[in-house]
Every structure is written in C-alpha cells, then in structure tokens.
C-alpha cells in the first residue's frame, strides 16, 4: 500500500509526515499493519548500526506475517510482534518509564494506533512535536461521542451509531490528542429521527 494522502483540514486535525532517522540515544518504533512499510522505507536512509539501538513494537493486524521477515532483517535490538495494541501496552509503558532523554519515537500505521501511542509518549514527557509519525493503511477513525464520552474504534461511515449510547453521530475533523480521538456529535439533535444515510468516508 502506498503512502496515504489525507485531505487538508482544520488546524486540530493531526498531520503526518514521513519517518526519517534522527540522532538520538535510542529509537522506539510503534507500528501496526502497513505501518511496517514506513519503517522499511525509512531503513533505506538510516545510517549503519542505527537499528542496533532500536526497539520495534509491531502489531501486524490483518497483514499477518507479510512484513515479519523484512522487519527481522533490519536486525533491531528488540523486535516485538503482538496480537493487539492492548497486549503491547504494558511493554510500551515499561519501555517509556525507563527511557532517558534523547529517545526518538517513530509512529507508523493507522491513526488510531498512532494516536494512542502518542498519548503514552507525551504522557511520559516527550513533546508531541518531537514525535515522528507516518500514516499508512486504513483511514478508519477513533471517535469519541461528545455526549456519553464513549470511544468507538474503527469508524468508517459518517454518520455512525455510537457503540456505547446508541446516538447517531456525525464525525467532525476536530481532534483531541489527549483523547486520541475525533469528535462525534449527535446528528439529529434539532430534528429527532432525521438521520441521513451513512456514507463510507473512512476506509
């Protein structure tokens, strides 16, 4: 899958770049699915020995073993393949808790994964602007219902039904880094029951 091109939007909507090797004591990668390609692309320009000080936390999702060998061939200091982000979280938190200033963080893959890993890294004291990210793969969104506060993962349609309270929500581009989620707002508040057909907006 090629690099994602996201439409220009409002200033709170995250923008993603292209991973590039930076100088630092240690390098932490957190990626899911096609995000592996961003790491492999970046590796082409990385200096010799770069990955010896790298720790890659990778959640392949539906891509299965597609990128396994190629990631292994980078010979990273630590490489973790995990079944889900939740499963990887204790490992990520342990890594950040012991890390020193100079750690470089690289995120790649879906917005949901990058947003949640960004939460952990900023919580650990790294400014969000110092964290690199590259979007690859699905554009499905993590959306918080502004009414019940529940977060629905992998939202692909607009509007959609909140998986917690059942309200029909339209998806705004307004994004909270703290929640790692876009905002969902009731679409039929002024005219109850008047709910437009959902449109596949995020795939």
């Amino acid at each position: 899958m090629s690099k994602s091109v996201l439409e220009p939007s409002i200033p709170s909507r995250p923008v993603y770049g292209e991973l590039a090797p930076r100088s630092g004591k240690a390098h932490l990668f957190i990626a899911d699915a096609e995000g592996a390609e961003a790491i492999l692309d970046m590796a082409k320009t990385a200096p010799d020995g770069f990955f010896a000080r790298a720790h890659i936390i990778y959640i392949p999702k539906a891509t299965g073993e597609r990128y396994l060998e190629r990631l292994e061939s980078l010979d990273p200091g630590q490489l973790y393949f995990g079944p889900s982000y939740e499963a990887a979280l204790p490992r990520l938190r342990r890594t950040l808790a012991d890390a020193h200033m100079g750690l470089q963080v690289y995120l790649a893959g879906t917005e949901g994964l990058m947003g949640r890993a960004m939460q952990e890294a900023t919580e650990a004291g790294i400014p969000h602007t110092a964290i690199q990210s590259e979007h690859r793969g699905s554009t499905a969104r993590r959306v918080q219902c502004v009414h019940c506060k529940g977060i629905t993962e992998e939202v692909t349609t607009d509007p959609f039904q909140c998986s917690h309270c059942g309200l029909h929500l339209f998806v705004r581009d307004h994004y909270s880094r703290r929640l790692a989620a876009f905002m969902g707002v009731c679409i039929d508040a002024e005219d109850p029951g008047d709910i437009p057909e959902p449109v596949e907006r995020f795939t």
Partner: peptide, 10 residues
Amino acid sequence: SPENYHKWGV
C-alpha cells in the same frame, strides 16, 4: 454545551 446538544438542540 456540546455534551448536552442532543437535549437542547431541539
């Protein structure tokens, strides 16, 4: 508030 918009919007 947006929180209560589904109540007051009407």
